[in-house]
Write a protein that binds this DNA or RNA. Structure first.
Lengths: 183, 183
DNA sequence: TATTGTTATACTCTATAACTATA
DNA sequence: TATAGTTATAGAGTATAACAATA
């Protein structure tokens, strides 16, 4: 795997008129590449940490959303987490089968179902939250603590801005995310 | 869609012993949620910008990697971009069919194929790069220019750290990514 | 008629294994 | 035997459409 065999072939007609920026180390520097790498790395670590949780990383997000908000309909949850409402059905099936959430009919609108956390679900959320916090810390270990803090804030602002057109997070709550290790 | 109908149902046994952090606005604040949102938003915008490019966003990354590096084998490319070597085959099939890259047999090791950019590929890279830069700018529009710069650097460092175990980006080139809009 | 939730279906991505050709 | 690339296949994730119940 050493670069010894690295051939001497001329770059050919390539890279000649690079102009804009002198040849960089590959796609590093590409925003898309970085987002992709970080996303994949996080998902991999999170999946490992949350292997026992019915819905995996997505199941955790559902639990977290349900825990931190008032009871919400499935559709509201789906929109908030940017998953399809059909996928939300499967997710909730799994979570409910595991006894972590309950579907209650909404007395005001019997089409809707309110999703609430059970006590089992709450303790599961706490336990998996700790594991996840570890994984997050490892993921950001390349950054100094203050940098990691700033990074989280930036990421959060960008994330919110992508959906702010449709619906703000809770209306008045936009300014300072609790950041830190939330749950 | 107004919150008027928002029911008055008691949070029940929920949220009572939140303890750790007073109830936050939903999953906002969750690192996983933010990464997910940003990733999806970027992919969506990038896919729109690169709709005409054979491999889509992944195709662009291949072009970019090939342009900025010496000719590399398919396997090296696949590892660098964190895609499976089998997926790389399909990607290169599409890109080669469109005349954007060429597969040349490596004279030193006839098992390997060197991937080089054609002149068509280079101009395509430039054109799509501009479109992508716009999309990136819109994605980060929630951040001030200096913040966006810092964010890119942080993201890049985290991204590199996730694979640095296997192989550094070009060995000596780690410190300052060209950041900016590279291509 | 419009909306919530469910079900069924298809399509894309990804992951795995088997095969070839070279080394 | 091990590696680079190809092919084929199965799985998860996601998106689409059709349906039932309710508004």
């Amino acid at each position: 795997m050493e670069r010894g065999t690295s051939p001497v072939i001329e770059p050919g007609q390539i890279d000649r008129e690079a102009g804009v920026a002198t040849a960089q180390p590959s796609p590093c520097g590409e925003l898309g590449w970085a987002i992709n790498m970080v996303f994949r790395a996080f998902r991999q670590r999170a999946s490992a940490s949350l292997a026992d949780l019915p819905g995996g990383p997505r199941g955790y997000l559902v639990l977290s959303a349900v825990a931190h908000d008032l009871p919400r309909s499935q559709l509201a949850l789906a929109q908030q987490l940017a998953v399809d409402k059909t996928a939300m059905t499967y997710l909730l099936d799994a979570l409910e089968a595991a006894g972590l959430v309950e579907r209650r009919p909404d007395p005001a609108d019997r089409r809707q179902r309110q999703i609430v956390l059970t006590s089992t679900g709450r303790s599961a959320l706490a336990e998996f939250g700790e594991r996840l916090a570890e994984a997050e810390q490892r993921l950001l270990s390349a950054l100094a603590p203050e940098e990691a803090y700033a990074f989280r804030q930036f990421l959060d602002r960008v994330a919110r801005s992508t959906k702010e057109v449709t619906e703000p997070c809770t209306v008045e709550e936009i300014p300072d995310p609790g950041v830190g290790l939330c749950p």
